[in-house]
Design a protein around this nucleic acid. Structure first.
Lengths: 342, 342
DNA sequence: CTGTTAGCGCGTTCAG
DNA sequence: CTGAACGCGCTAACAG
């Protein structure tokens, strides 16, 4: 009892009309009589007809599917961006296909290929940490018409639209905020500098210091990952020195949390003795009894903008032209107890 | 300059062999000489050939795509399940398509249809809160061969496999834990009883009370949603009474958090005066300065199991038989400060 | 070992 | 207003 779904051919046989008529009736073609349309639609429903989008896509060249490649799907940031993309594109009939790169450029490459084989109409991606060489991505641009859109973690490739937040500005804002609160010795927990976002946050930090006549000390820039443990380790390392900082701008909320935990353990008062501000505005930052200041990346909005950029590029592609767009969103500073002195 | 990708037909023309030979060479068919294979593969690479999976799927009837319908993608629970499914299925060449129902049964229906039109090989879903009638789902079972797999939020439909945790047991464990810690007047924050999971957690709570000779009082069961605000409201309502509880088992971590916040505001000591335990083991529960006890749902594992159930059903479908599976995972109790008296 | 051809399901010319 | 026939790209059955 194999339930094969009915095709327009089945309907045409039953009704003794041609498949063309059935197809047109189903698609509400103007030159079909209302009577036939009604009849076809009625029997289609009766026979439980379902349009096979595969065949349609093969014919039209549009699958109405887009791919999204992220390192991992179960983080607040990436899942929120995905939410934004899905909500922007779903009304236009698109489906989103999710792939995880696990921060591995080889897996990323493989996904890129399988998505292309699946004939997706576009690819959204945040590159993995191990993506240094981008030849494989540029190659896609040269050999296909599939638009690629970078969000957050971009690479500089001409022809690829990007949607990011102004990480430089975020870093600047966070640092300046600490300065204005009166902190004098601000150190920075930076992430993997292979990713532009962390370079930019770092540069924003540096520039804010300079603009306010503070010295940028290399020893105040600590490389950490995005984990609680690395935040703890960073504090341990810092407090082994003779002069300790009075404020921390962490490029990661998790490292900021680790810092808070370790500082508390050492009975160092936040924000009286040391201020802490993170980045990403992870949900937990506001739930803490000592809420942690952070820079919001507006991820859902980022997804929606990325969706819009894609939709525009689809339109343009029809008309021949195709320009790259660079959307930069404004980061939002959330000042909470961990960095407010008064 | 439209970059249309090469087809096997292009390769066959260039090499003066038939398309069948090209297809077979590309698929490493045994009855093709190594020389031809090498030649075909080489020129395929040169011409930047990409296999069109649409055509393949149309022919084979397998798209190697599965759909996942969840209320929202950007929650820790659902994004973690998705991660599990993706990681289980990706090695077998499957892609996952994500749809959000926004807790709306009509949107859910629409997604179900478009996924079917897209010829997905299977559908994973957690039903929306507004899904009371399930005729549309049963109809799919009757008219297609597409396997459906419920995870977490299931409905009782014969023929549909399910992967859940034992919510009854989770509720029982949480309640019994509170009893053993010496709490005497335990109340329960329940979620939407239209969803089985909340019924089960509630039933587990009731049974644990009975088994330990406590009375089940209806006024101790408060209906709340899964938000901080509703947790706060629930506490306000409870503390308006003459007799207040000394422990709360909340079916939602967010409501539990709201409760903690409101209790703290009222200078009521946790866990000395009132114990709190939540459900879901949201990341934030362990990050708090007063970490909140919770019941873990092992969402990634749930996704992996759902993926396995699907893979088995695909195999079985080939051999004709098709049995439904009911996988029930064990919940895990995480006891933290919020419910540990000593 | 290789070639010819049909067909997967649909939309779409071109005729009528 | 409707029908006949082609083609999207690929695999597989049948022939050689």
């Amino acid at each position: 009892m194999n339930k094969k779904s009915a095709t327009i051919y089945d309907i045409s046989k039953k009704l003794n009309v041609s498949v063309a008529t059935v197809s047109r009736a189903l698609n509400n073609h103007p030159r079909i009589s209302q009577a036939t349309k009604d009849l076809v639609n009625k029997t289609a429903k009766e026979m439980n007809y379902k349009q096979n989008n595969l065949a349609k896509a093969l014919k039209s060249g549009e699958t109405k599917n887009v791919g999204i490649i992220v390192p991992f799907v179960n983080t607040n940031f990436f899942s929120s961006v995905i939410r934004g993309i899905e909500e922007e594109l779903s009304p236009f009939g698109y489906h989103v296909i999710i792939c995880q790169s696990h921060e591995d450029v080889n897996i990323e490459k493989r996904h890129l290929n399988t998505l292309l084989n699946a004939q997706v109409d576009g690819i959204f991606m945040s590159v993995s940490r191990t993506t240094i060489d981008t030849a494989h991505i540029r190659n896609i641009l040269d050999t296909t018409n599939t638009p690629i859109i970078f969000f957050d973690r971009k690479k500089d490739i001409s022809g690829i639209s990007t949607v990011t937040i102004d990480d430089y500005r975020g870093g600047y804002m966070a640092t300046e905020h600490l300065i204005k609160e009166g902190y004098k010795n601000i150190c920075h927990f930076s992430g993997d500098l292979n990713l532009e976002i962390y370079q930019n946050r770092l540069n924003g930090y540096k520039q804010a210091l300079k603009d306010h006549h503070f010295q940028v000390k290399e020893e105040n820039i600590i490389m950490t990952g995005s984990s609680i443990e690395e935040g703890i380790e960073a504090i341990k390392k810092l407090w082994d020195r003779k002069s300790v900082p009075d404020a921390i701008f962490s490029a990661s909320d998790f490292a900021a949390l680790g810092a808070c935990q370790e500082l508390k353990k050492r009975k160092i008062k936040i924000p009286q003795e040391v201020a802490v501000i993170g980045f990403s505005n992870e949900p937990f930052t506001q739930f803490m009894e000592l809420p942690i200041s952070s820079v919001d990346q507006t991820p859902v909005m980022m997804g929606k903008m990325a969706g819009q950029v894609f939709l525009e590029s689809v339109k343009e592609n029809g008309s021949g032209i195709s320009t790259e767009k660079k959307v930069v969103l404004a980061p939002q500073l959330y000042i909470r107890k961990s960095s407010r002195r008064k």
